[in-house]
Design a protein around this nucleic acid. Structure first.
Lengths: 185, 185
DNA sequence: TTGCAAACCTACTAGTAAATAAGTAAATTA
DNA sequence: TAATTTACTTATTTACTAGTAGGTTTGCAA
């Protein structure tokens, strides 16, 4: 079964949110490419907040499947896959969803904010555990606070998807490689 | 002489840009608090792009004065002041201007983009020189590529102003302190 | 004191935004 | 097969957006 209209709207909404920002796209930007009418988008997502909620929820689902699939792999490879994922974001000229939601934070309704918070905490905890495990296995250099290390990795990699819009592509690869190098023993 | 209307518009525009995003505020959001009419804002800044340009220019000017004032201080103190500056951004519930411009990048006209690029390069170069100097003086740990280190510091600190909107205040302080600790010998 | 420009205001336009009401065709279920 | 639901469309509304044309006031300069 090909993806439903609902799924296509979420995908396109996510694309637009991360390329242009929540307030920079309209329902027309979604309905036109999908060759449906404005009201059809409202049928699936009565308000733009409902769409934002669905996008946040989708990211939670995807990350959940991702972390399950990665569970068996060793910390180093898990981190590499994570960083490569951000590389693909960079190549598609989007920014990370966390940064996109963060800069548009005050445009989001309370339930969307909660969903975004849950997703973000999921990512941070996953990274924190990964780092702890890598340290326990002697693959990673010891750091004082694993959550802080996780926060620094997350923030520098997601900020890079933003920063390189302004500077250059090379800067992304530099930061990406450096994150791994710094952690490895 | 108290600050002119023009200056007040730039200040308020900058506040709104960094609190809500470029597409989330209107000229009405500027004219109302300043108790002037919509057209008065258009008198000073015919288009919203002109306002964005002036905001970018203002940041360049401020950073220029900042770097001049800091020139005599030693690297460690320069970095501390820089990080404290970001702490004040965090406290005012804004995000950093670089991240704000980056996420709204495709809403900006070419001349605004150029101005933002110049400002950002100014900051990166200032940080790079600071790190090199600190390393030469033996205050900072040696790193392979000083620009990469600068990029990582900049990205993790400006992303933190975004991330802590979603997570918690503590996370900002953690990252901030860790940046300094990691660099110091 | 006249002329003129800076800094506004009044009043408006054209376009776009999100959102809704009411209707329809096709599929699903009872 | 009758009733209902799903997935839309057509048509419209309300509200706001950036931007403009033209008039007014104020202060300064010739």
């Amino acid at each position: 079964m090909a993806s439903s209209t609902r799924e296509k709207i979420i995908q396109l909404g996510d694309d637009l949110l991360r390329k242009q920002g929540f307030n920079a796209f309209s329902y027309a930007d979604i309905s036109k490419p999908l060759q449906i009418k404005n009201a059809a988008v409202h049928y699936h997502f009565p308000s733009k907040q409902d769409l934002a909620f669905a996008i946040a929820q989708w990211h939670k689902d995807v990350f959940d499947r991702f972390s399950r699939k990665m569970a068996t792999k060793e910390p180093k490879d898990r981190l590499k896959t994570f960083l490569n994922f951000y590389h693909s974001i960079h190549l598609s000229e989007k920014v990370d969803i966390i940064g996109a939601f963060a800069t548009d934070w005050y445009s989001l309704g309370p339930n969307v904010q909660t969903e975004v918070q849950e997703f973000t905490e999921l990512v941070i905890e996953w990274l924190t555990e990964l780092i702890q495990e890598g340290m326990d296995l002697g693959q990673f250099r010891k750091t004082q606070n694993t959550r802080t290390t996780a926060l620094k990795i997350l923030s520098s990699i997601f900020a890079s998807t933003q920063l390189v819009r302004i500077t250059s592509d090379q800067d992304f690869t530099r930061v990406k490689n450096s994150i791994l190098e710094e952690l490895l023993n």
